[in-house]
């Protein structure tokens, strides 16, 4: 399972960076979206996959009997998803406002602050 996920992670990073390098600001935001998903999937993969062993402790015991899946990466990913959701919501509003103000969605038209 890990090799497949590793390839997916790599593909997501590549697609995200390709999209960020495009000139359209809509594609830019799609790229950022893919990038945050790639990072989340990376955390999930790199911390080890354990199938069919939920980190639950049976009644009357202090610790699980057999090794279980690590619940912490999922907590991290959940936090990261919430944060990236908030940030990307802001980014979408921002490109909408920018489109109204600049009347263009091409990064090459947004060079007013570069010189």
């Amino acid at each position: 399972m890990e090799p497949v996920l590793a390839l997916v992670v790599g593909g997501l990073y590549a697609a995200a960076i390709y999209m960020i390098l495009r000139r359209s600001i809509v594609k830019l935001v799609i790229g950022l979206l893919l990038l945050s998903n790639a990072a989340n999937l990376l955390i999930f993969t790199v911390s080890g996959l354990t199938r069919e062993a939920p980190p639950l402790i049976s009644a009357g015991l202090d610790a699980p009997l057999a090794p279980t899946a690590d619940p912490l990466p999922q907590a991290l990913i959940l936090t990261a998803i919430v944060i990236s959701f908030g940030v990307l919501a802001f980014a979408v509003v921002l490109i909408n406002r920018a489109w109204h103000v600049v009347q263009a969605e091409d990064m090459d038209q947004m060079t007013g602050t570069d010189t």
Partner: peptide, 17 residues
Amino acid sequence: QMEGAIKYVTINLFSSA
């Protein structure tokens, strides 16, 4: 501000990733 913010937001989100 819009033009500056798009660059600022993009590169900072990239660095966060």
